[in-house]
Design a binder for these strands. Structure first.
Lengths: 219, 219, 219, 219
DNA sequence: TATGAATGAGACTTCATTCAT
DNA sequence: CATGAATGAAGTCTCATTCAT
């Protein structure tokens, strides 16, 4: 991660390009099964120049993980802090999560498969961030139980169902698939909320409230 | 009366042990990142002897995949053929699937992560089997819609939700976890069926009908 | 102005050196019995660097075969196309063939012994080239029969005698041996032509006509 | 070569079978490229039993060489000692040599290609035997010059031509080929004698004298 | 006699990385 | 900024051979 000091203006641009290409390769073949030589070929750079940009192979993995978890956590924190119904916030979080997954499918492949190749501090940091994200979901679910929207559930199991349903999407989604994040989120949440909500809760009204929220916040 | 050239009586036993150990290692570190030397160390065998049992590294991967898909497909075919309500059969399939996942967590890790390292015929065969399993789920969902139990859903998306929810379980489950297959299946199906069923369908009655089915079939 | 990825200026030179050294080793010990480690030691390179130059062991074999058959076929085609008496052309071909054999004895060892270790396309190509060379000899012999210089022979057996006599030379010839290609060719052809020619043919005149041809073509 | 003491009656028979099979394999693939496992498969024996018969891989090579050189030297010595015209003896030797080559093509392949894999005493002994055979040919050629049948030749080069022409035959001959040893010997000797003999020598008469000799010795 | 299990060296090849230029 | 050459460990796999049974 320590980048050599004093780079020209094009450095960061090219660096980001290389990380993109690496994410695509890692997603297709796996991190361990992708060689530096292959990366260089795709990037159009000899190995020496490649290392000038990437530092090390593991560095690439770190960057890819950061690209996934950085925006995701930022958005999740923002949503969790909204002054809205926890169920609505869960719905917003769902759509954000799916949006991130669909927007960067190859990054997600790497994120889901290869985080175990991180070592030491990189790994610790990653796991901390993953736990933070899970905690946000968990807290929203607990809040929804406290407001009476949800019945009394095992909060951890509810969170795991939420994550199972969303996170496994990368396995079959593909660019130009038939469904976008908004649609998938609506469907997933319809399923989850039906299962989670209390007897009297108006599940069908959620989408209306979401529309109202969007009117308000875009105003 | 000398045996013809082949393998001795203890061969298959030891072979299965080695596959077990390989599955554990592959699950922890990934197939590509696990070396033959490491496998040999765990098995307590020199490399030559190891190869006497395994044939090749990819062979191990094939065996592990077969151990997952073999029993799973057998059970799924049997359940799909039962003369029962499709919703009940989905519930049975769910529990079987979760039972397989929890019983062989490390095999499932490998199954989910490393099938891409299979080549040629091995890969083709695997993908065919995966599709067969998915087809069974899909057909049951369609049946449930036809009987009026489920509302009109996109069958493929319903199947993917079913699989998302179940298959991602390996990511967080662990030996001696708090929940068994029966419990998880009940919870997952409660969620899914609430989301999928028609307005008038008696979701709560599913578990009772399951109990009745079990009484019947054990009789 | 940086070079595009590829190979530096010294690459090809070193590569040819390595092929030379490989030919010497293969000739002495056989292709199959010569290890990459040994090659590296002789070349003064670690295994990694060696592979940077050679690509694969079989590649070395291909290059060695090409070094033999490339010049040989070029020369043979040129000679066959000359507007001269077929017997004279056979004499010229004989000397060229012996010149190639004596000039690259170790290459010829490998060429004669280890072509069977080539696989697939490499092997097919080699066999095609070998057959082309044999065809050239065969056609010249047939021509010589048609002009009446040779008696009526089984053309294939005549060709095989020609090749037996020449090609086996590598088995006993050595650098700084007492005989050069010109001398050996004269002797071999004296033997062969005596056996092949018609009753009235002036065998002894062949060498004189050769000298005349050389005068003409050097003028 | 030291065979374990005290074997049953079938030992030697089976041993010879195995050597036959080894010769076939070595001829087709080369000594170095043929594995003991492959030999065992062909022989229908596990590796332990195979070693009981063969002692070591190099032993097989020794046996194969002996099977070639033993009969050849015996026959050559006998022929050289005949009280006949040296040219006739050369003709007899030629036919014997070709007979041995054609009768055991795979042994000859091994003999020609893999003698270099012999080490130490095995190698020394082989080379001594080879030289003895060459000496016999050389002496006959010198005799033929002394009797005036042949012109004055470089005896060593004459011998090498003789051997080139005969020994290279294994490269293209095959079982059920169109030509037998008698025919090939007649052709080869016709070529060689035409080239070697003095002006007045009756080459054509050689075959007649050969027939007379055969009448005499079968009588 | 014969088996099958075991060894350990060595086979060919690829790897991530470094560095002088 | 970028190259190409080099390393040495590690990758998967095969080898000839031994030996308890």
């Amino acid at each position: 991660m320590p980048r050599p000091p004093g780079h020209g203006p094009g450095y960061e641009v090219k660096r980001q390009e290389i990380i993109d290409q690496a994410a695509a390769l890692f997603a297709k073949q796996g991190y361990a099964a992708t060689g530096i030589a292959e990366l260089g070929q795709v990037a159009g750079l000899a190995k020496g120049a490649l290392y000038y940009y990437i530092g090390s192979k593991e560095n690439l993995l770190v960057e890819i993980q950061d690209r996934v978890l950085g925006p995701l956590l930022t958005a999740a924190r923002r949503i969790a802090a909204l002054d809205e119904d926890p169920v609505l916030r869960l719905r917003l979080l769902s759509e954000t999560l799916l949006g991130n997954i669909l927007a960067r499918l190859d990054h997600i492949w790497v994120y889901e498969h290869d985080y175990r190749h991180l070592r030491g501090a990189n790994r610790t940091r990653l796991l901390r961030q993953r736990r933070e994200f899970e905690k946000i979901v968990l807290d929203l679910l607990v809040e929804a139980m406290e407001t009476g929207a949800f019945r009394s559930l095992d909060p951890r199991l509810a969170m795991l169902q939420f994550l199972n349903l969303h996170n496994h999407t990368y396995q079959w989604a593909h660019r130009n698939g038939p469904w976008d994040a908004e649609f998938l989120s609506r469907e997933y949440c319809a399923t989850l909320m039906s299962g989670f909500c209390s007897a009297g809760y108006d599940v069908a009204g959620l989408e209306k409230r979401l529309a109202e929220y969007r009117d308000r916040s875009s105003a």
